[in-house]
């Protein structure tokens, strides 16, 4: 027998999901509508003539492809470097006892508690100085964005991976050593694959952060418009006087697809990773 409370909960959950889904639906719908329907004063919640005009308009004009590639490049490099660096750090912090270890752990926790946006101003000057020494990592350069996102992705990534590394029994390392495997070999051929679920979860979070970033791209890429990333390019579409909603929504849809694909691929592993990190 089904109790009314259960049904009510199910109905509420579905209603909430529908409310959350609606703006998403509207985004994709507006992107597919022909122009005359988008600006119509009586918009309908469906379209009978879906067209890809908006998408082609976005993709062919305003260097959208370039910005898209910039965003992809930054996000992928951040993910790759963040994985390597946080894996090494998490392993050292879990497996080795050394002076200063506790201090580093506390630093990691504090770093997670800082609203990074508050550091925008010093970062701006830091990037400017770095640029004087190594131009490729300074203001107006994608390399600079990579460094910033990499640094801010580390605290959570290390914290999360620590749990995964700790879950691998120490006996395994001893066995590998007995079998004659070097430390490096154990690290990369045994431990690295074993913590793969954790690596996947951390990489999603770093990808999302780098891909979605708006404030740092806006602040650090000032004059080199060819190095702009997607969020800023989208905002260039968003002009109060000539709202081209078809193009805005097509661009938004294009920008959402990569994160969504990335996320759906690894959703299950992310949940277990998050649970471990928050409980920790």
């Amino acid at each position: 027998m089904k109790r009314p409370g259960r049904t009510l909960a199910e109905v509420l959950a579905v209603l909430a999901a529908a409310a959350i889904a609606f703006p998403l639906y509207w985004m994709v719908l507006s992107a597919l509508k022909p122009e005359s329907e988008v600006i119509s004063s009586d918009p309908k919640p469906w379209t009978l003539q879906p067209s890809l005009d908006n998408f082609t308009r976005v993709l062919t004009t305003q260097g959208f492809g370039r910005y898209f590639l910039n965003s992809v490049l930054v996000a992928l490099v951040v993910v790759a470097l963040s994985l390597l660096i946080s894996f090494l750090a998490a392993t050292a912090l879990t497996r080795l006892r050394f002076r200063g270890r506790t201090l580093l752990l506390v630093m990691l926790l504090v770093a997670q508690m800082v609203p990074v946006e508050a550091l925008t101003i010093p970062m701006f000057f830091l990037m400017r100085s770095v640029g004087d020494a190594v131009p490729a990592f300074g203001l107006n350069q994608l390399g600079g964005l990579v460094l910033v996102h990499l640094a801010f992705s580390l605290p959570f990534a290390i914290w999360m991976l620590r749990g995964f590394v700790a879950a691998v029994p120490v006996e395994l390392e001893e066995a590998a050593t007995l079998d004659g495997a070097s430390r490096q070999r154990f690290l990369w051929q045994v431990l690295f694959p074993l913590v793969a679920p954790g690596l996947v979860a951390t990489s999603v979070l770093s990808f999302i952060h780098a891909w979605n970033d708006f404030l740092f791209a806006k602040t650090f890429i000032i004059s080199a418009s060819e190095n702009q990333t997607l969020p800023l390019a989208l905002l260039a579409f968003f002009k109060p006087d000539q709202n081209d909603w078809g193009a805005i929504m097509a661009g938004s849809t294009l920008m959402t697809v990569p994160v969504l694909v990335f996320f759906v691929l690894v959703q299950r592993r992310l949940v277990s990773g998050l649970a471990g990190a928050v409980k920790g």
């Binding site: 999901a17 959350i20 703006p23 985004m27 969020p231 968003f238 920008m255 959402t256």
Partner: peptide
């Protein structure tokens, strides 16, 4: 669905809510 709204870039989320 709930997670889809979460991975949405902030800029895109702002456009959707604006609309």
């Amino acid at each position: 669905i709930v997670v889809a709204a979460w991975v949405l870039p902030e800029v895109v989320a702002a456009f959707a809510v604006y609309a």
